[in-house]
Computed example of a mutant assay.
Amino acid sequence: MDVLLKVLTVGGAAYAALLAIVFVLQGHLIYFPDAGREILHTPQDAGLAYEAVWLTTEDAVRIEAWYVPAPAARGVVLLAHGNAGNISHRLDYAIMFHHLGYSLLLFEYRGYGRSEGKPSEEGTYADARAAWRYLVAQRGVPPERIVLVGESLGGAVVARLAAAERPGALVLASSFVSVPELAAELYPWLPARWLARYRYDALEALGRVSSPVLIAHSRQDDIVPFRHGERLFAAAREPKVFLELAGGHNDGFLFTREAWREALGCFLAQHLPAGAMNSVPR
């Protein structure tokens, strides 16, 4: 009995220590800025003209962004990428949206790439707001001509932005319901919902979005289960479209496949104003 009590005591202490470590260091399980700090390519390498701009957030952090114009653009896509890599890893999106007739603003989260600061939940929201302000205030893009696109973690970022603003459309690709929900599924041996200091509650934000919504998810997603996409779609208001993808979570740039690119193009053509934008000021 004494041996069993000792084993239980030591085991309990070890588990408590593990919980403390996870609680303190969970940011390292969410953000992976060091997975790609180096800028490997620019849109110019893909034959696209672009403008590198530096945005200052409301809390005085400077973040990098790339504006990739399309001729006679119907609108502008504001893309929030996932939790790893940087904007130089998302050039396929620039090519795709260029072919669809949309300009693109790729913005970098704080602490990623060459941007200043350290990533945080409120920080990523502020970064997205700075990108929105740049398009609306500095480039004069009408909100109804802006398409918010979020990839994985970026889905929660732009869902919150769309709930506060009124973009022309919102697209969530391979996104999760919330961090606590996803963590509880990935780490069932931990009280993840209780430990979570990060929310990224896309489900709650989506319920407040009045813009047309497209949810895209794959049944083969090996990180964010397909049911997350289904729950997000159920929470979205009409008009809404569900686009079923194929392949794993990190197969990369799933939208660039022809069938899905056509479906996305049809969705945007249906819900954004017809015709090209007027020239806008710099």
Rank of each mutant, 00 (worst) to 15 (best):
V141I: 13
A73S: 14
Q44P: 04
L79Q: 11
A131G: 04
V280E: 09
A156Q: 07
E144I: 03
A183N: 06
L91S: 14
P273L: 12
V141W: 02
E181H: 01
Y93P: 08
Q138M: 01
F255K: 02
E121G: 14
F267W: 12
V177A: 07
G111D: 11
W66N: 02
P167Q: 13
A131H: 01
G207S: 06
L170E: 13
A130L: 04
R37V: 08
S210N: 03
P212E: 10
E108F: 02
A235R: 11
L106E: 15
P239H: 08
Y187G: 04
G207F: 01
A35S: 07
E185D: 10
V241H: 14
A216L: 12
H81T: 08
D59H: 11
L19H: 13
P71N: 09
G155F: 00
R145W: 00
H99F: 06
Y200G: 13
A236Y: 01
L25T: 11
A169G: 13
E38W: 11
D127P: 12
H228V: 12
G275T: 10
R199Q: 15
I21P: 00
A235Y: 00
L148T: 06
V213C: 07
A65P: 08
V24H: 05
R129Q: 13
A246Y: 05
D59V: 08
R133Q: 04
M96H: 06
G85D: 05
A94K: 12
H81L: 13
E64F: 01
Y112D: 15
A234N: 13
T9D: 03
L106T: 14
G154N: 08
A274I: 07
D59T: 10
W66P: 12
I39V: 15
A65D: 07
I30L: 15
Y112K: 05
E108M: 10
E122V: 15
L203S: 05
V209Y: 00
L182R: 03
A35D: 08
G140W: 12
L153N: 03
Y31W: 11
E204L: 02
V61F: 06
R139V: 09
I21K: 10
E151D: 15
P188T: 05
L104W: 01
N83I: 13
A13K: 03
D127M: 02
